[in-house]
Every structure is written in structure tokens, then in C-alpha cells.
Design a protein around this nucleic acid. Sequence first.
RNA 1: GGGGGGUUAGCUCAGCUGGUUCAGAGCACCUGCCUUACAAGCAGGGGGUCACUGGUUCGAACCCAGUACUCCCCA
Length: 880
Amino acid sequence: MEIGKTYNPKEAEAKWYPYWMKNNFFASKPDKTKKPYTIVIPPPNVTGVLHMGHMLNNTIQDVLIRRARMLGYNACWVPGTDHASIATEAKVVALLKEKGIKKTDLSREDFLKHAWEWKEKYGGIILEQLKHLGASCDWDRTKFTMQDELSDAVLDVFVDLHKKGHIYRGVRMVNWDPQGLTAVSDEEVIHKEKDSQLVYINYKIKGSSEHVTIATTRPETIMADTAVCVHPEDERYQHLKGKLVIIPLINKEVPVIFDDYIDKEFGTGALKVTPAHDINDYNLGIKHKLPVIDALTADGKISEAAQIYIGMDRFACRKQIIKDLQEQGFVTKIETIKNKVGHSERTDAVIEPRLSMQWFLKMDKISKPALDAVVNDDPEVKLIPEKFINTYKHWMENVHDWCISRQLWWGQRIPAWYDGQGNTVVCKTKEEAFEKLRSTNTEVRMENIKQDEDVLDTWFSSWLWPLTVFDPHIIKNGWDKANEDLKYYYPTNDLVTAPEILFFWVARMIIAGKEYTGQKPFTNVYLTGIVRDKQGRKMSKSLGNSPDPLELIKKHGADGVRVGMLLSSPAGNDLMFDETYCEQGRNFANKVWNAFRLIKGFMVEDIKQTEAQKEAILGFEIRFSEQLELINDNYSKYRMSDALMKTIKLFWDDFCAWYLEAIKPDFIDGQAQPIDKSTYQTTINFLEQLMVIIHPWMPFITEEIWHLIGERKQNDCCIVANWPKSQSLKEDLLKEYDSTKWIITTVRDTRAQKKLSPKDKLELFETSSKPISHFRNFVIKLANLNKYELTSEKIEGTISFIVNDSSFQIPVSVNVEEERERILKEIDYNKGFLKSVQVKLANEKFMNNAKPELVELERKKEADAMGKIKTLEAQLSSLK
RNA sequence: GGGGGGUUAGCUCAGCUGGUUCAGAGCACCUGCCUUACAAGCAGGGGGUCACUGGUUCGAACCCAGUACUCCCCA
């Protein structure tokens, strides 16, 4: 068989993903004889294409799910997408616009037809892309938040929560997106620091020649002013009590009010009060019973109520009004200040605080169990890393009511019905609504009943995700009648998501889970960081600093990219991505490939196993067990990068550099020597176990090698192989094995120092009360010795070194002066060390306070150091 | 303004209950090797005032206070 010198990922990827699919390895069905391990995917936006954040997130999920599968769990990873109302609607609107169709010209039904067409055609591209990464999702379970059954559940929840009194309708100041023409939640507003002009404007005081100066960054709203407010204790304005002031340009009279809400220091200490356009002013307005004048239209233009500039865009108006006010002498100065301006996450339009009728979910009571589930000494839901608990707590304790209505068409339409006479009922169908309305309005007629025009916030459907992907009828039926799937898979095990949506989504899923099943939706929440470029900038389309994930996969292989993503991504910390990480991953894949090539090339014959081979096997066995334990421990703590690095080093260092080098048969006269059957078979076993533990990180190459090792039955695949079990730790042996590595390294170093070729064989003499016993031939092989003997003599003309309690000598030509220097330096160091230990031991307070084990340890350190010094001094004297 | 992080080698990060040889890893760098698995490699090596100041302690990268810089969230 011809095996290439470098690993070719493309072939393996094209081969094994379809093979896994065909054999249903990703599929999961409830099976009472096995424990479930479940992850629901954070459903990507249906309009989305794969970006680096998805890569990180889904690689982690795939690693977890693949390992769980190998550990024998019934592993189920549910994929799907989110309908993303505002983003999708914006996309469809844009597409229609290109075709010359205006949304406003379409009926709701026709628009939705277009939207569904778009979804069928382009939605879900991202799921196909995930397959290139190797994501082992159970694709038969793919869900979409707006598919019929899931939508139905959303309406059930709305009706139910309304019945329970948690949902209400009210006029509120909302964050209005004048471009998307919808309200957006607080969480969807991005505050950006901007340079703004703070304009100082004089308002004349009625019946006086004086004026009062207000400062505002929003002069275009002065027509909506209904008062000017000053601090009751502000001495500058005491004379204004009971006075009226006149708004420039429109010459409207408004009262001066007094409230200690005012910050005397900001601007002039006098505030224009515009209840319709600022949340604080709105509250002031309520308190002081001020009228509300809405001077802006829904799309951000000046309304008729403003009297002037009608129809002008708000920003154009701002420029114009400043100019006009200046010309008429009302402006005293203009300052440039920095302030935060809210922008819509979806359309990037400047958010306008706006009063409107919206539906809200009351959060105070319903969120309580979700707070307790996380913030607790022994929490039901664990956040990883823990530092997010504080953030979560802070948010949940100050939670605001959730505005759940959106002025859009793409989404679940709010199941509220109006009879046109001020009666509202909430229920799923028009027929039901008719019945209900009739009880208060006997005159009501079917054709007069109108459904609410708005749809629900997308998060109002995705908060049900872990429930409805398994049982969409759970809301209706209740937990007791939940279907088999939900009972089996819920609560899920791990959720992998970004901290940015801890509140949007994670908290709300816990709320919904608690409300409808009395249980948490997941046990662990692994919060990934943000993928940034190496300058620390967030990756974004507009900056163009994000590599195309699929290109990366093409270039470095899926396995390489997966490793690259995880090499440096501790939970919750941002990842400074650099393509060289993928190179490291690719390099490792190549290393694995070549180790396999070496093993595959061995000539196996019926010969005797060498002692060095026996010892190497023992060494690797104990090392493998030791490291496997540590790797398992890292996994259990979700320390993914650590688990990965240990796995890589176990293969690269322990297996390749130490084990394979030790068992590799020699070349004699350019002729590779054969290997014995036993060593070969053991090596293959080791390789298989290593493929298994590497598999979650690098599924493709490991599956490829698994099958190249030998003929396999159809179902005998790496993906479903058993995770290895570690043997009991043999600490003494491990310690000896570690010592042998030090000995070997030191011999090699000596060779390098003496400018000897690695091919030159050396002799080694050991002086020890407890000499190396299990790995002597291993040392001979790897240090390339022709003699390794015990002695109690000082041999003349040797370089000497110490490993643990033993001293070693290598006969080589020695520069006595240099050697003396070196030993003296080492004696010096050890004496210093000894002194520090002895100071500790002489310290009464230490002796009284420190734990006994610790004192014991210090005594051992003292003895070790003294022993070492003695040995070194002996070496020194033997130099003479 | 309120809340939460972070600052350890050139870079990216570990360092768990304060206690060996605890100052570490990977990359980068330097030296020597095209040694027939692998130059995407092998062998070896150098490199840090643990941001700063003070405190607690027998003992501090680790605990406390303050300072500087920085990131995130909320208002």
C-alpha cells in the first residue's frame, strides 16, 4: 500500500462524514439501557453563514458529544436554526426591493410567502457548512423555531402566561428602530460612544426680558418640549417659580418645573423636558402630569405635531434647526461632547425612544426560580467559568419586564384578538376569540374581530428550544404527559454558548424550563469567548478581518482547524485567533500520520522482543494511564485547551519521541531490521487507543487511520470505539521512568556540548543506592550508549551529573577548569537552597503553624540538598 | 454613574487550598542536524522585577487595600 508522506485531509473528510451518516452513528433514540448525553445546539440564525464564532462553539460541542459517545453514553446533539425575525425580515425586504417590490405593497400573506421561499432556498446553509467541520449532529432531529409545531408551542406559552397574569399590554417607552420599524429589546440596543454636539439654547421667560438656557444634544425635539425642569435647590433658578418659558421658533409656552432628578452640574442645570422622546423625561412627565407630544413619526421623520419641519428626517432637521436657531440668535454656544448613542443591533439605525403599545412579560416572579438555580452554593445549573455567576446574579436581581412584541410579520403572530370596541382576548384561534368576546360583547361579529398585527420576539420562541425540540406539545400537555423523548433527554447536559446571550437566551431558557417542567434545561453552561483577530479586534464583516472558515478548512483540513480553534481558548476568555494555530493543528495531524506510516512500515517477523522494547512498552503503559487520568480530569472541569494540549503531548512526546524511538528497529547496512510480533501488536494497540482519545479533536484523521490499521467490519469505527480505561497509578515506576528521561536528555545534552555526533556511542556509569532498574535498556537505546554500568568509584576524566539521588558519570575528554566551574556553581545554588530550607526549619513560627506533612517535606528537602552537595563535592575532588 | 473581569516570557495563555525544584506550556527565537516515519521534522538552548505601591503572614504570582492601564456588562 502506498501511503503519502503528508496527510491529505480532503480525501478523509469526503470519505468519512458520509460513512458516519450512512451508518447512523450520529442518530440517537431513547434507550433506557443507556444513559443519555444531550446537547441542543444554540440555533444559528437562519440567515447566517458560518463564522469563526460558530466554528469555536460547534467544535467544542462536537468534542463533547463525540467523547460522550465513546464513553458509552447515548449521545444526542440536536441541530436547528432560529427564524431571527428582524434579521430575516430585513433580508427579505432587501431582496424584494432589488426586484422592485415594496413590502408595503404586499399583503401580510404574500410577504410571508416570499419569506418562506427565501427560507427554503437559503435558510440552513449554515447547517450544511457545519458538516464540513465534522459536526456529529443527529440531523434527523433538525428543527426550526418557526416550524408549525414549534410555533404552536410558542402561542401556547403566550396564552398560558397571559392566563397566569404574567403577560400584559401597555404603553411604554420602547427602543424604536426607525429603520426596521419595530421595537427592539434593551438587549438589542448597542450603545456606541459618539461625538455629539451639545447645543445651548435660550428660552425666553414669559413676562421678562430674561431667558433661561438649556443644553441639549437633540435640538430637533424642542417642539415636543412640555416643560423646562430645574433643581429645586439651584440658586440660579429660584426666581423661575411659577413662571412660563417660551419655546423658540414655535413660540409655545411651557411651565418651569422643579425636581431633584436634575443634575445641577450638567449643562446649565436646566433641562428641556420632552416626555415623548426620552425615558427620563417621560417619567418626569408622569410625575408632573405633563402632556406628551410626539414630534416624530415611526420612520424617524418630524411629525405634524411638531408644527414645523414636518416630514423632514430627524438628522436633517437637527442640522437645520441648529442653523435656524443660530440665525435667530437663540444659540449661545455649541460644545462637542462624548455620549453613548443607542444603535439597533440589526439595522444599526440610531434607536429612538418611543412611546407605543406593546406586550410585556412580567419578569419579577417568573424569573425567581431561574435565579436560584444558578446562584446557590450547590447550583443546579453550573456556569463555566464561574465568574459569570456574578453577572448573571446582577442581571436577574435587576431584571426588567420583557417587551415581547415586534412590529414585524416574520415570526409567530401574537394570539390576541380585538373586537374594535376596546375588548381584547388572548387565545389561539379566531373561533375561540369569537366565543370569548361574545361573553362581554354580544354584538360581536366574526368579521370585525382583528388579530394583533405584531409578532413575538424571536427569543420568545428560542427560550423554549430545549423543550420543544423534543416535545412541542409539552406546554399544552404538561410535564407529566411529556413524550418519551423529552422524558429521556431532558434536562440536557451541556449548553455551549456565548456570554453575550447569557440573558437573552440562557437565563430565559432556565425560566421556561422551570416554569413548564419544574426542572433546569441543562446542567452545565460552557461560555465561550469572542473570537478576535490577533490585534484584539472583534471579527466582523465590516472590518473584513475574519477568515472564511470553509477556506481555512480547505487550507488546513477540518482536523487542523478544530485543533487550531481550541489550542488557546480557555472557557469564557476571548480567543485571539491567529491562523498559525491552525497550522499547529495541521502539523499535529501530519505527525499523527507519519507515526502511523512508521508503524505500518514495520516488517514483522517471528523474532525475540528486545529488553529495550519491553521496557519502552512498560514506560508508555504507565505514562498513558497517568496522562489519561489527567485528560479525563481536564474534561470534567471543561478545561478544553488543557485536555487538548495533554492529548497532543501524550502522542507527540511520549508516544513518538520516547516510545516509538525506543522500539524502532535499527538499520544495519542500510537495511531496516524486522520487529517482533508482540511489540508490533502492542504498538498497534497503543495506536488504536491514541486514535480514540484524539478522535474528539480530530475525527477525520483518526477514523482514516483506524481503517488503515487493518480490515474493519462495517460498524467497527473509531467514532464508536470505547474510550480507554486507565490502570491504577504506579507512582514509583512513573518516577523512575521520569528519571530515565532526565538521564537520557542529559546524555544528549552532554553530547551536544562536546560537539559529538548523535551517532557516537558513549558510556554511562551510575552511582546510586537505588539505581534505575526497570528501564536500563531503554536508556541504552535512547541515549545511544555502549555501556551503562553501576559503579561506586569516581572515574577519572568524566562529566558528571545528578538525577534525583543518583549520580552519573560519562567518560569524555573533560576540560577540568570548565567542569570545576560548573560544579562549583551547582554547589553554590544548592547551598543557597539548603540555607533557605534550614531557615524555615529553624523558624519556630513555621514549625508551630505549618502542617506536619509540610514540615516533613522541608526535612526531606534539607536531606536531599545535603546529599546533593555531598555528591557534588565528591565529584569536585575527583577532578583533581 | 453602577457592576464584573483582566494585567505572568516577544505573542497567546496555564498556574487549582498561600508551602519542594513554582515561576510553567504552546508558538516565536537561537544553536546543531536533509539521522531512510515526519524539515509540517529531530536533538539541544536562551528568555519573566508575576503591572505598580503598601499591608497581612513564618512564608505571597496567589489573600487584603490603594494606584495605573485595559476589557466586558448595565444605566
